[in-house]
Amino acid sequence: MSKNGPVALIFHTLFVIFMLAPIVVVCLVAFTPEGFLSLPVNGFSLRWFRAIASYPEFINAFWVSLWLGAASSLIALFFAIPAALAIARYQFPGRDALSALFLSPLMIPHVVLGIAFLRFFTQAGIGGTFTALIIAHVILVFPFALRLTLAAATGMNRSVEMAAISLGAGSWTLFRRVTLPLILPGVVSGWALAFIQSFDEVTMTIFLAAPGTETLPVRMFLYVQDNIDPLVTSVSACVIAITMAALILLDRIYGLDRVLAGHSDRSR
């Protein structure tokens, strides 16, 4: 493979600095010993991480985000797995339209989704509840759950299933013993990617969250709107650390390139 020249490497270095700078800055400022925003030039301190403990809003918001992400991703899979199997295997009229519908939450701006859900849930009388948040997030993460499950189902060797049928497996046994285990890496990655999407989402959620059901990104956003201080940087640093951990885990299970490939075809 041909090597990059010096100009290319300088460009690459600047690019990587550009990509990492804001993230590194947040993590560095989080360790400042000062009471104001500054780089930790006079030594590192964990005081702002300890300070998180005395702000229960952030702790609560973290738990809301965690449960919301876990539950909505799981529920989305219950709907996405059968749909993915149907789309992967059958040619039927309206198949393309149906996949477009299922992937539409990617294309609809989140602010529009937020407004539509706010109106809908308010009319339905469940505005601001955790249930409403879960339903909204199921829709939000559905495309990610569908995409990765679909990729796994499409890549599967169909004759393996035929073999199981010829050996006498009924449809439920076939799904439980053969199909599901074989698409499981895709399903798990779909769950993980869906979880991260839900965990990070702010634009749609901000319309739906009420005090008590605020997610962590929403809480952070509202906090930043008022004032930026080292506390929110330490919270952000924690979020970044959690995401990194999830990222590495995802890479190990499934290969990050495959996960992100499911991420890119947003416009289709």
């Binding site: 060797n157 004759s159 393996v160 035929m162 053969v178 074989l182």
Partner: peptide, 11 residues
């Protein structure tokens, strides 16, 4: 049935 790809259950 023996399939061309063998179709063994990989798991």
């Amino acid at each position: 049935i023996v399939f061309q790809s063998y179709a063994l259950f990989p798991h």
